[in-house]
Amino acid sequence: MRKSLLAAAAAALLAAAPFAAQAQSEPFPNRQVKLVVPYAPGGATDIVARVLADRMRVTLGQPVVVENKTGAFGILAMEEILKGRPDGHTLMVGNVSTNAITPIIYKDKMKFDYETQITAVARLAVIPAFVGATTAGDFKPQSLKELIDYAKKNPGKVRYTSAGIGSYPHYDAAIFAKRAGFDSVHVPARTGAAGMVGDLTNGDVHWAFINVASVAGLVRAGTIKPLAVITDKRMPEFPDVPTMTELGFAGIGTFNWQGLFASAGTPADVQAKIAAAVNDALASDDVKAALARAMGTASPTASPAEAQAWLKSEIGIWRKFVAEADIKLE
């Protein structure tokens, strides 16, 4: 019985082998393409990946599925795309935290060399942010200047929130406080933007850098007061909100970008094919409209080479930020 089972298994393997070989020599894509997302479903990065996957499926003519692989600041998702042959069928949709900050601050947790083994194939979208303040309780500041003055007068009493230790809103707030010359207590939220919104609404924390998509409705309802936007020009949807540059804090505040990443071993022609499919999706009216409603903007790169150059420059910028903020990590 046992023997015959083994024999059957061996026969099955032998029978399958030629197909496997054939599948590998066929041009990309010859099977399902997987987009690994380093966050739980529902966040900005997850939604961007799902909007994109829905469209890329049509362009590539193969199923495109999103797989959420959370944990270890995005490192687990990176390990996923480094597994197996680098043939472009397993890609990662990451954001500024996982793919520009993690490689700097959690380098020692990686069993691989991020800068030589992972490459950016395309930039996808950018989502701007507010500096928002709570309107709950007795918190009065109505402008960025009032926030700074209030914080200076009440040291240790003003608190800000972020998506977690070492997340980009944490760095933004720490650097802003440092440059403006006040102290503020960091109370990290455990559940990302959703937690940040809750804490700002009930007044447990007073201010934060928070992406526009997460709070637009609350800003219009007056629950959260926008003190500044991080965009170069004022946002047409919020013409009364000044920019950080206008207020004298040029260069502070991070656009949450999403990018598509692959194993660096992926052949150049496959990368080009993926980038073309991405750009086709980003140019489609459906995707543009979906992103616009979520207050984001499609932000394509012309080629994988351009995307990689952009990633390198982002990491360079973040190296300086990380050094300046000097946040203690254990």
Binding site: I47, A213, G217, L218
Partner: peptide, 15 residues
């Protein structure tokens, strides 16, 4: 959180 995401994609600002 996913429901909120769905609303956002449809241009409804939760709040």
């Amino acid at each position: 959180a996913l429901m909120i995401g769905a609303m956002t994609i449809h241009g409804i600002q939760p709040g």
